[in-house]
Design a protein around this nucleic acid. Sequence first.
DNA 1: CGCTTAATTAAACGATTACTGAAATGACGT
DNA 2: ACGTCATTTCAGTAATCGTTTAATTAAGCG
Lengths: 104, 104
Amino acid sequence: MLPDTFAALGNATRLAIVERLLREGEAAAGDLADGTMSAPAMSHHFKVLRDAGILEQRVDAQRRLYSVRPEAIRAIGRWSLTHRQFWEQSLDRLDQLIDKENRP
Amino acid sequence: MLPDTFAALGNATRLAIVERLLREGEAAAGDLADGTMSAPAMSHHFKVLRDAGILEQRVDAQRRLYSVRPEAIRAIGRWSLTHRQFWEQSLDRLDQLIDKENRP
DNA sequence: CGCTTAATTAAACGATTACTGAAATGACGT
DNA sequence: ACGTCATTTCAGTAATCGTTTAATTAAGCG
């Protein structure tokens, strides 16, 4: 489950897709094209992300609108928090970052 | 950088190695064997994790002791914190989302 | 009804990855 | 020095991955 999520994100193109969707919320497949890649290639990446449970597809006429499934990202967050004590030890400055995130 | 980390962890065997090292701190290559896999295969996985900057190797006589580099896990923690607002908010709004859109 | 647009699927390829067994390295105890 | 244990390196092969071209589905528009 979690390995599948990591595997899907272990590709620069797919990670970029996910990060952009995290920022924009929802976008059509065509709008997510980076210009250099063919549409089928993009579609394949969408499928990988869908199969990994990271992306959700909503159909609007001909358009396929994609968005990130919160549960998938939450799983990573939960994993990192589980081991937070480990990576927190090595860098005290991280406390500031965490504080900042906790106080919006 | 981060995609490489995800890619390395996107393999059940390697993720298991990392999680065990996160718990135990440090372990020899031989002790990390799961019984089913050949030593060369394990060695290869160690190399992948080393190349991704996730594992650190310490030589003690014939033994190779591995441990997790905190920076690598920290990168994931930071990434998840960056998008924490997304998955926390979405969790809060889950009821509305189910009511609004996900009714079949 | 054709024509265009949006996107996915199918087929095929080269490249990379994941294993295996066999051999090599390196370090210890006698 | 010798034998041995722990681990890595070396071929080699099977499987998977990422991409492309071509064909397909489906909706909107004249």
